[in-house]
Simulated assay, not measured.
Amino acid sequence: MSRRHATILASTLLLIAMLCAVALVRVPYSELSPGPTVNTLGEYGGEPVLSIDGRESYDTAGNLNMTTVRVTGADYEMTLGEALYSWISDDAAVVPHESLYPDGTTAEEAEQENAEEFSRSQESAKVAALRELGIPVAERTVVKAVVKDGPAEGTLRAGDVIKAVDGSPVTEPSEVAELVTAHEPGEDVVFTVVPVKAATAAEEAGEDPAAAETREVTLTTTAAEDDRAIVGIQAGTAHTFPFEIDIRLADVGGPSAGLMFALGITDKLTEEDLTGGTFVAGTGTITPDGEVGPIGGVTMKTLAARAAGARYFLTPEANCPTAAKARPDGLTLVEVATMDDALAALEDIRADDTESLPVCAAN
């Protein structure tokens, strides 16, 4: 074989090997891409995304779209070729698999976590909206979660209302930890609770869940890693709303729609349209006190919003620098840190007075 033919053969074999590697070699990365965007003021799957029963609500105009990101699943292994293609694509991003699914999170675990975050996000959105409108919302301290194999397992349940610890009334979740850690590990602590079944029945009957019949539960504390006394629960806050607010949106998870749900609820309970008929989209977590938090995949969400027709995008303050670096043409990125910021921006937008809007800037 001549040297020329040998060189050609070697090059061909090398090319085949490279193509095989691109097609077959798996890499520890995941892909993000723009997902669906849904108008919280409209319908999804033939049903209203937001519906209110028991209080006057109003017709709305314009859009307050929540945005999403598509991600490859926890069990999906990208090929080298897929990763390279996504890397150079304008509408996809590649991130380490571990950043989305830490510690070997399974698909089922990821789905469950997203569903729980979405549920908490909806409750926070309802509270933030009603507080913004000056509508009182009753709250109570509850058992949010019970640690497996902890002292409370089998005795306390998620949803139990915590009325007192060692006879001391409890009004905030932080007080539960303070009262428990006042003990030494191995000592008993007495919880006064309304069982979740009784609390749920009271709420369904239109009564105060915290006023239902209580029972006392004695638990023996154990030691945490830092030697504090614990009973193996996470305390949190639950709310009773003065009327029904229903959020229907299937196949969506995570906490990032909180801000847009809160704005949508506020719009439906306000006679004046918040958007003035303008197409506004956005993202951001929301706390019951109306603080807006950062989210992941903001660049993919701005692409989805602009493709859907949005002109303005409400952007969490912490996400602004990243979003501004890849801002789609024709989309104004408005920086917000609180619910009040978002409402002020919407007031300027519907008045067509946008010169003073706090626009996101890249660092």
Results as ranks from 00 to 15, higher is better:
Thr240Leu: 15
Phe241His: 15
Phe241Ser: 14
Pro242Ser: 05
Phe243Asn: 12
Phe243Ala: 11
Phe243Thr: 12
Glu244Val: 15
Glu244Lys: 15
Arg248Ala: 13
Leu249Tyr: 06
Leu249Asn: 05
Asp251Tyr: 10
Val252Cys: 08
Val252Ala: 12
Val252Trp: 04
Pro255Ile: 06
Ala257Gly: 14
Gly258Ser: 13
Leu259Tyr: 11
Met260Leu: 14
Phe261Cys: 13
Ala262Asp: 01
Ala262Arg: 07
Ala262Met: 08
Leu263Ala: 11
Gly264Tyr: 02
Ile265Thr: 15
Asp267Gly: 09
Asp267Ile: 05
Asp267Gln: 07
Glu271Lys: 07
Glu271Ser: 03
Glu272Gly: 05
Glu272Phe: 00
Asp273Glu: 08
Asp273Cys: 01
Gly276Phe: 13
Gly277Thr: 08
Thr278Phe: 08
Val280Tyr: 05
Val280Asp: 04
Gly282Phe: 07
Thr283Tyr: 05
Thr283Asn: 00
Thr283Glu: 02
Gly284Trp: 06
Thr285Phe: 06
Ile286Phe: 09
Ile286Lys: 12
Thr287Asn: 06
Asp289Val: 06
Glu291Cys: 02
Glu291Pro: 08
Glu291Tyr: 09
Val292Gly: 01
Pro294Gln: 15
Ile295Arg: 09
Gly296Glu: 03
Gly296Ile: 05
Thr299Pro: 03
Met300Phe: 13
Lys301Ser: 11
Lys301His: 14
Thr302Ser: 13
Thr302Leu: 08
Ala305Asn: 09
Ala305Gln: 11
Ala305Ile: 12
Arg306Ala: 11
Arg306Ser: 09
Arg306Phe: 02
Ala307Phe: 08
Gly309Lys: 05
Gly309Ile: 07
Ala310Cys: 05
Tyr312Trp: 05
Leu314Lys: 10
Thr315Asp: 10
Pro316Phe: 01
Glu317Ala: 12
Ala318Thr: 14
Pro321Asp: 10
Pro321Ile: 06
